[in-house]
Design a protein around this nucleic acid. Sequence first.
DNA 1: GAGTGGTCTAGACCACACT
DNA 2: GTGTGGTCTAGACCACTCC
Lengths: 260, 260
Amino acid sequence: MPNASPPAAAKPLPGPQGQEAAPAFSPLYQQIKALLMKSLQAGEWRPGEAIPSEMDLAARYKVSQGTVRKAIDELAAENLLVRRQGKGTFVATHAEEHVQYRFLRLTPDSPQDAGPVQRRFLECRRMRAPADVARSLELKAGDAVVMIRRLLLFAERPVVLDEIWLPGQLFKGLTAERLGEYQGPMYALFETEYGVRMIRAEEKLRALAADGPTAELLQVTPGTALLSVERLSRTYDDRPVELRRGLYHTSAHHYRNEVS
Amino acid sequence: MPNASPPAAAKPLPGPQGQEAAPAFSPLYQQIKALLMKSLQAGEWRPGEAIPSEMDLAARYKVSQGTVRKAIDELAAENLLVRRQGKGTFVATHAEEHVQYRFLRLTPDSPQDAGPVQRRFLECRRMRAPADVARSLELKAGDAVVMIRRLLLFAERPVVLDEIWLPGQLFKGLTAERLGEYQGPMYALFETEYGVRMIRAEEKLRALAADGPTAELLQVTPGTALLSVERLSRTYDDRPVELRRGLYHTSAHHYRNEVS
DNA sequence: GAGTGGTCTAGACCACACT
DNA sequence: GTGTGGTCTAGACCACTCC
């Protein structure tokens, strides 16, 4: 459907000159991308669902299909959307087979050692945020948080000890029981039950020596070198929503990474 | 230089039906991308130089500018090319300020501790490849390799001990002296002096305890937990061209990573 | 066959860099 | 101003999926 002045309406400050040094020019497709992101954040389309077709979106925003396409391309590149030729474009979800362990980069040294991962929850309780946790999660010191401790076992052997901190505000009814019942990745639980979707994360890795209690849980001798992985996960709007501190026993597994 | 029948010749089996179940369809822009990659590999344009403009390339390959653009877009996304609006598209190089330490992901815990990195070469000699090194570099056991040992210092303190293995075939005149003379990143030296360009790398991270000699070099007590980073770097055609084993002292620095 | 994403084209205009 | 990459459009056709 043609329209009177589509580029004009959307265009960024073409008339009066910017009052600042930075004219803040933004391409149309970036504006469309921002609108799509807002809809995602608002839950207009839920994880796993299809978003409207490119043609529909083009009509809705009064731009050409190519412009919508470029916006979607970027969102797909950021893993927020998934395109499927012939079917549609879908909101990415953590509840899918082939993306199950997108965030867990630990791999067995010998591929044939790959096996199902077992989880064992050690603790789950609500408490006031310690100062460092509050700072990372951008909460006020003393705000409510949920703390979870968990063991990951590969081939019956404990390999990862995780300590997970979540803003209490966002995870009201989260209990050890609900964690235990749920099958599938934790991030899928967060997304379906609490509407909190982890989008991206920053990790800080270092090596440190196992202390006594940790050594016992991971079945290593105290002082064993462990890989420490501190992850801060964020949602759509870049708010931090999870702090995860993991200790990995890397005698038969390693953390894989690609750099380019 | 134009050629007789590029699109026709390049087009994917439009006439006769494929004889197999998989028709091996390949979009035009992927074929253009492959041609560009071949030119890069052949050194038709050297690192830092501009490649022909999109219009020129479109004329050369007898396709539209948009098709060339999409091919270049992908190469730019893979960090093989760098686009600069108003100037042209350039072959990526390791010899640039803002990409200096693209492959070194170690960061000081406190940003204000950021400072110049010093290098100290401990050893550089040619030898026969040990079995494990040969396997990683896809050489025959006993082939010539260059082995380099090097210390990296942040703020005068040793933080990284690297052991670097290179195929002797590719690095004929490489000596400790030339390494010491050269200013700038090692990968820039490799690319300008030996025509070997590292494109991407896989890393395996783990934690382990410092042995005696290592501890002395890194000025830690033996047994200190160190971050082990084993990196295998590859060139354009995915051939491995460097094996690097690093030990990082992570008491005041960490390895940063983003996951999405 | 209808609908979806994927490719390709051609042309217009904009933003940026150099000269 | 000229040339480069960057954006936007409109239309045609292809490949894939489902009915």
